[in-house]
Design a protein around this nucleic acid. Structure first.
Lengths: 151, 151
DNA sequence: TTGACTTGGTTGCATATGCAACTAAAAGCT
DNA sequence: AGCTTTTAGTTGCATATGCAACCAAGTCAA
């Protein structure tokens, strides 16, 4: 991006999106075909699988997602029988979410898939470059102020 | 991603999306607020601005986008008076798209915004790291097979 | 020329999402 | 206690998108 004329192909936001879309498209096929799940649903599962029972709010905070998205994903996952809600005894508004046995099985499956997909990606990039990328992405995310929806 | 339990925060596709979304959200505010434009619309403009007159098909090929998306973006941009369609004299199906004077002005504006946004991003990452990121993203995009919709 | 297949582009339909408005429970404050 | 302000979640509405089906112009081959 040295010259004064604009070239999309040198534009970081564009490249980021292209790469993200390309990679996501591939992995999406997995959770979609195997469990009829949407990306947000998969993320919710991933959070519950990793951290155990937590509220929708916690998931929003942990995964930088908007509450509407999470709310709908949770509803769908409940219908699918992957998670259960329990009223919180500390806060009458909140609900404690946790994976059902069925949900745990799905998470185990997708977790494995994710690990191997990720490993494949890193192998193709080379370990050192993959780590560098990982690091850069974290820095980028941190650079940008959080979504307004996170208040 | 060394252990066998899956952690979303170490998952490259997830990080890629987070970073892309964070960055896009910011820049989106610009073309959205200034010209009421959607991301695909902005990309179409960017292609036309950079390459001059071309068909929708060419845009799809150049920007790895799906034809439906491009088709609708073109329709909206035409309504907004940013681009014009001319029947191709070589192919009765194709239409040659080009920016109107108004469209060129918008492109000039957004091009500048993009350049400076990109420069800001690169400055925050540091020139060397920014270049490394740029390179990694291109490699990533190339790694993944193109969308099925591109046939 | 005629018929089969490909290709540029559009449209219908179903779904995911953003945003704003809304409900109900908590917290603060006086 | 009584009142205002947050906060956890949900919902309505408008819009963007994916996918498959579709139309019309081209291409190819006999």
């Amino acid at each position: 991006m040295t010259d004064s004329h604009f070239d999309l192909d040198l534009f970081l936001p564009y490249l980021l999106n292209q790469a993200a879309e390309a990679v996501s498209r591939e992995f999406q096929a997995i959770y979609r075909e195997r469990h009829g799940m949407t990306r947000t649903q998969w993320r919710v599962m991933a959070n519950l699988g990793r951290f155990g029972a937590m509220t929708a709010r916690d998931i929003c905070a942990a995964s930088h997602e908007e509450k509407t998205r999470v709310s709908r994903a949770v509803a769908a996952l409940e219908v699918a029988g992957f998670l259960a809600r329990l009223p919180s005894d500390r806060d009458g508004r909140a609900e404690i979410l946790s994976l059902t046995a069925k949900g745990l099985a799905v998470f185990a499956d997708l977790g494995q898939q994710a690990l191997s997909y990720d490993a494949g990606l890193r192998a193709q990039l080379g370990a050192a470059d993959a780590d560098a990328l990982h690091d850069l992405l974290l820095r980028l995310r941190a650079l940008v102020p959080p979504a307004a929806a996170e208040d």
